[in-house]
């Protein structure tokens, strides 16, 4: 790894503590060679209003999604994007953002599709940095162009397609949306726009664990015992489980994927990014309504 890990005591109980850094650590390491800080937000203009000095911006819509097809960018596009942000393959990348790192975790998940070796989250994200009165700048970073290799995206390990979900019944499915979306009262998060799902409800057998339960009031991740109680206790997940998480377009479930994989140490977790906007509009797939997971559908 290019830059030392944050060995703060608050992370030591997590399965992969090297995936998190604290605001104190980041403050102390700003400007270190081999470190690039990336801001990734829901709001495309938030970076411009002020950001951590030196941070570059990567937007989930404009940068990470293919402009034509509903898919992520490919290896060539990723290589161009990262090279333009001054990130090379051995760079330590720390991502932070708004909404308890919801979009930052999504960006981290996409980085992982390309196997970027050292990518971490700033625990608490923008809100914590801001609440501690730390520096912001409105000066856009102007990184030197560097070479990032063209690496083929690998969807086989942490990404699930609709077909994978259809084959998955009987193994744990986690629906990380709000209870209202899960039960079928509505197709989008409360206070969010409709994004075109034609049916409401959830994928049969899915447990509902809203993503935000993993975040504390200040936007940091909850401590290990609380996360264990939530996912191993309430949701009944066990070591060795093959798990698929989904939400509406795969962003909130990327946050839960991070928690399950890097904080709790589950080794087979996939994010179904088609999520409800695909499932809820697909023809002839089973749907369950109400607050109960529902049984395994007959083939």
């Amino acid at each position: 790894m290019a830059v030392s890990v944050d060995s703060s005591a608050q992370f030591e109980n997590f399965a992969h503590p090297e995936r998190l850094v604290s605001t104190e650590w980041l403050q102390a390491h700003l400007g270190d060679p081999g470190l690039v800080v990336v801001e990734s937000d829901e709001d495309v203009l938030l970076y411009e209003t002020g950001h951590i000095p030196g941070a570059v911006k990567i937007d989930w819509h404009v940068d990470l999604n293919d402009p034509i097809e509903r898919d992520y960018i490919d290896g060539e596009q990723f290589s161009r994007l990262l090279g333009s942000r001054g990130i090379s393959r051995d760079t330590t990348v720390v991502i932070y953002g708004d909404k308890s790192n919801w979009w930052a975790a999504y960006a981290l998940w996409v980085f992982t599709l390309f196997g970027h070796p050292d990518v971490r989250l700033l625990d608490g994200g923008r809100a914590k940095w801001e609440s501690e009165g730390r520096d912001y700048t409105t000066l856009s970073a102007t990184p030197d162009q560097v070479d990032y290799p063209v690496v083929e995206r690998d969807d086989s390990v942490i990404r699930a397609y609709k077909e994978d979900v259809l084959e998955h019944f009987g193994k744990p499915l986690i629906d990380v949306r709000s209870p209202e979306e899960f039960s079928g009262e509505r197709t989008t998060a409360p206070a969010y726009p409709e994004e075109g799902a034609l049916r409401a409800g959830h994928i049969p057998t899915a447990q509902n664990v809203p993503w935000g339960k993993a975040a504390a009031q200040d936007g940091t991740f909850r401590p290990r015992p609380e996360l264990d109680a939530l996912y191993r206790g309430e949701a009944g997940l066990a070591d060795g489980d093959d798990i698929i998480a989904y939400c509406r377009i795969g962003e909130r479930s990327a946050h839960s994927w991070f928690v399950l994989t890097h904080l709790l140490g589950f080794e087979n977790v996939r994010n179904y990014d088609g999520s409800w906007t695909e499932w809820g509009s697909a023809v002839r797939v089973p749907i369950a309504k109400g607050t109960e997971p529902g049984g395994i559908p007959a083939k």
Partner: peptide, 14 residues
């Protein structure tokens, strides 16, 4: 639409 993304532009239509 290109800089902000078409999805986000829907908010302005609303």
């Amino acid at each position: 639409s290109e800089a902000v993304s078409p999805l986000r532009m829907r908010g302005m239509n609303a």
